[in-house]
Amino acid sequence: MEIEPFELERFFARFEHDADVMLAESGIQSRDTAEFDTDPGDLGYVIPTGGDPSFRERVGARYDRSREEVLFTCGAQEANFVTFAALMGEHAVTVTPTYQSLQAVPDAFGEVTTVDLEPPTWELDIDAVQSALRPETAVLVVNNPNNPTGRYLSAETVQALYDIAADNGTYLLCDEVYRLLAEEPLPPVASMGEYGVSTSSVTKAHGLAGCRFGWVAGPREVIDAAAGWKDYTTISPSSFGQHVARQAIEREAELLAEHRAQAAAHRERVGEFLAAHGLTWHEPTGVNGFPTIPDGFASGRSFCETLVREESVLLGPGDAFGHPDRFRIGFGLATDQLEEGLSRLDAFLARHG
């Protein structure tokens, strides 16, 4: 088994420790531990290792699923990994651009066909997806809202994806980590029927990246198989993460109201900034956008590398998502940090204009 290097993470590893402003962060601003009871008691394994049954029941209810149809994991990254390990046979189809693991992990287990969203509005051609499916396709993969573009596929589009997957005997796996940042979130894919699988976490929408707490919800046979793989990864979710995540879910309405308001204000601010500099994006849902690079730079990578070296502001190069003419910007960070980052980016663009 071989897997491609994770280009975005390797880029971040080179620069993020020393950068003053992380303007490529993909989640909402992190909450402070002072808001939560941070004493989970015994720091042993979570028992049962799939997660606390009463908490799984509460999470499962949002998917119209039982607690046996939910598995708690160490973040959505592990949820995706163990689910791919459980589901993959010979072939998968992944909608791109996307978070690299949603393509690279299934590709490490089998063969992946990609179907591209079409810029500049990142539309999805359902007929192209249909054509990419094969009789042996095990899983169709989508990230909605999308990272990096911020495109939120419509309910009609997601239903069409589910229908063609189900008709083919293929699971539809949707990474929904940004779903609850939408003002009107779509129903989760795991609630759509026997072929629907959803992964998520408290990282992006709840501002709890450090908890490393996520889950997968779906049919019992998928959850049982994913749990079998999880026995070989982390065994159980973090007891600390589960303890804090439970409190966040209890306060979810309050937290999401704050985070959606912050995302909306920052989205407007960044949109105005980009327009003033002649850069374009598809207005995103969530806290990521995927603008075009400024004139005068050969690629998004050269733009991002020059910016971080000159201004200590880190953006994400678009080639990490297969689009070298773009870059990823994140606007979920604190307002003062966002303004500082944009101020430095403004000075940088003025020098290189």
Results as ranks from 00 to 15, higher is better:
T114M: 04
E7G: 01
V222N: 05
Y162M: 14
Q247N: 10
L133V: 03
A166P: 05
E111F: 04
Y178P: 00
D42L: 03
P120M: 13
G210H: 08
T157C: 09
V95C: 12
V189S: 07
E78H: 12
T233F: 15
R212K: 13
Y152F: 09
P237L: 07
L333C: 06
Q262D: 08
D52R: 14
F348T: 08
E183M: 05
R328F: 06
D20Q: 13
Y232M: 04
I293E: 02
A34E: 15
Q262S: 11
P97W: 08
D346K: 07
A138F: 03
L315S: 04
L307Q: 07
Y195M: 11
G89C: 05
V244K: 03
L345H: 09
D42W: 05
R58M: 08
Q262V: 07
D116M: 13
A61V: 06
I329W: 03
F6Q: 11
E69W: 05
C211Y: 06
R10T: 12
S238L: 13
T137W: 00
E136Q: 12
I126A: 04
Y45P: 10
D116R: 14
R309F: 00
F84G: 02
L71I: 06
S343K: 10
A76S: 10
P53G: 00
A320I: 10
E250L: 08
I3L: 08
D37E: 12
